Simulated scan of single mutants.
Amino acid sequence: MSDMWTGEKVRLRGVEPGDWEGFRSLARDTVDVRNAGLVEPPRSDESFRAWTADRAARAPGGEAFRLVIETLADRTFSGSVTVGETDTRAGRFRTGIEIARDHRGRGHATEATELLLTYMFAEQRHNKCEVEVHAFNDASLALYRKLGFMEEGRLRQHEFFAGSHHDVVLLGITADEYWATHRRPAVR
Results as ranks from 00 to 15, higher is better:
residue 129 C to W: 01
residue 5 W to S: 07
residue 10 V to I: 10
residue 174 T to D: 10
residue 130 E to W: 01
residue 71 T to F: 00
residue 132 E to A: 11
residue 3 D to W: 05
residue 128 K to H: 03
residue 25 S to C: 06
residue 60 P to G: 07
residue 130 E to F: 02
residue 155 L to W: 11
residue 79 G to R: 08
residue 176 D to F: 01
residue 142 A to F: 02
residue 177 E to F: 05
residue 96 G to F: 09
residue 123 E to F: 13
residue 136 F to M: 05
residue 63 E to D: 12
residue 150 M to S: 12
residue 108 H to I: 00
residue 43 R to C: 02
residue 122 A to M: 03
residue 51 W to N: 12
residue 23 F to N: 02
residue 85 E to N: 13
residue 81 V to Q: 00
residue 167 D to Y: 08
residue 136 F to V: 07
residue 17 P to S: 10
residue 68 V to T: 11
residue 66 R to D: 13
residue 46 E to S: 12
residue 139 A to I: 07
residue 44 S to L: 09
residue 106 R to G: 04
residue 25 S to I: 07
residue 166 H to L: 09
residue 113 T to Q: 07
residue 27 A to F: 05
residue 13 R to G: 06
residue 100 A to T: 07
residue 178 Y to C: 06
residue 111 E to W: 01
residue 8 E to A: 13
residue 86 T to C: 13
residue 174 T to G: 07
residue 165 H to G: 00
residue 132 E to L: 09
residue 151 E to P: 01
residue 31 V to T: 07
residue 122 A to W: 10
residue 124 Q to T: 06
residue 90 A to R: 15
residue 163 G to Y: 13
residue 61 G to T: 07
residue 144 Y to G: 02
residue 2 S to Y: 11
residue 140 S to G: 11
residue 123 E to M: 13
residue 113 T to R: 02
residue 40 E to R: 15
residue 22 G to Q: 08
residue 59 A to E: 15
residue 24 R to N: 06
residue 173 I to W: 00
residue 161 F to S: 14
residue 15 V to H: 06
residue 81 V to D: 00
residue 79 G to V: 08
residue 166 H to S: 08
residue 20 W to A: 11
residue 7 G to H: 06
residue 29 D to V: 10
residue 135 A to F: 12
residue 123 E to S: 14
residue 95 T to W: 03
residue 158 H to M: 03
residue 42 P to I: 12
residue 66 R to I: 14
residue 113 T to C: 01
residue 156 R to F: 05
residue 33 V to G: 01
residue 133 V to R: 08
residue 95 T to F: 04
residue 23 F to V: 04
residue 156 R to E: 12
residue 127 N to F: 08
residue 155 L to P: 04
residue 155 L to M: 14
residue 54 D to C: 02
residue 167 D to Q: 08
residue 136 F to W: 15
residue 76 T to P: 00
residue 76 T to E: 15
residue 24 R to E: 12
residue 170 L to A: 09
residue 75 R to V: 00
residue 22 G to L: 06
residue 68 V to M: 08
residue 122 A to S: 15
residue 54 D to G: 09
residue 65 F to Y: 15
residue 53 A to Y: 04
residue 147 L to M: 02
residue 83 V to I: 10
residue 91 G to N: 12
residue 49 R to H: 07
residue 4 M to Q: 13
residue 16 E to I: 06
residue 161 F to R: 00
residue 123 E to R: 15
residue 144 Y to W: 09
residue 101 R to Q: 12
residue 152 E to A: 05
residue 14 G to M: 06
residue 7 G to I: 03
residue 102 D to M: 03
residue 17 P to F: 10
residue 48 F to P: 08
residue 62 G to H: 13
residue 45 D to S: 14
residue 139 A to S: 14
residue 184 R to M: 10
residue 18 G to H: 08
residue 70 E to K: 03
residue 187 V to G: 01
